[in-house]
């Protein structure tokens, strides 16, 4: 009888401990969410920040060129450095255009003149999606929306890129 009692209390003890751990974990999960909900200033700054992508404005031509850079991304406690890519060129008015290379179909990376059969277009290798130079999807190919454009600014002759802004389907 006394042995039985001991077992029960041991079981109870373990149970309490586990519940305790669970509660602790839930609190851990909630805390960052609460903080973000309450205080917008504390939200991760990374995503929308302008980054110097290492390209001088004078080196930008009318032919799209690929630039790669990295951003710091903090997802709760998880920090990563995902790569970012853009196709950059000057249009006929001399304005800088920075297009996201992420195909609006299912997300492969498109390249300028990626197919010999389609000069002067962006081409997606996955399902032959195509876009004209301004990033507008070609009708009859899988993508249903144009490539997003990056927010941009120029400082000391260098190009800075920010968030990619999606555009409405044509």
């Amino acid at each position: 009888m006394s042995e039985e009692k001991q077992q029960v209390s041991r079981r109870q003890f373990l149970n309490y401990t586990l519940t305790g751990v669970g509660g602790f974990m839930a609190a851990g999960l909630l805390a960052p969410m609460l903080r973000m909900a309450i205080d917008p200033v504390l939200q991760p700054p990374s995503e929308g920040e302008f980054v110097n992508v290492g390209l001088a404005v004078e080196d930008i031509t009318t032919t799209p060129q690929r630039v790669d850079w990295k951003i710091k991304q903090v997802d709760g406690w998880y920090e990563s450095e995902p790569g970012r890519t853009a196709w950059v060129y000057k249009d006929d008015n001399g304005d800088i255009i920075a297009l996201s290379p992420i195909c609006t179909h299912l997300g492969c990376v498109v390249s300028w003149e990626g197919s010999e059969d389609h000069p002067n277009q962006f081409f997606c290798p996955c399902h032959d999606g195509r876009y004209t130079k301004d990033g507008v999807n070609v009708k009859g190919t899988p993508p249903l929306a144009p490539l997003p454009t990056f927010e941009q600014k120029v400082e000391n002759g260098m190009l800075y890129l920010g968030k990619a802004i999606p555009r409405k389907g044509a």
């Binding site: 790569g83 492969c108 997606c124 399902h127």
Partner: peptide
């Protein structure tokens, strides 16, 4: 692998 996946993630 991360980079390869990124290039071809739709297929």
């Amino acid at each position: 692998v991360t980079e390869i996946e990124r290039e071809l993630s739709g297929r």
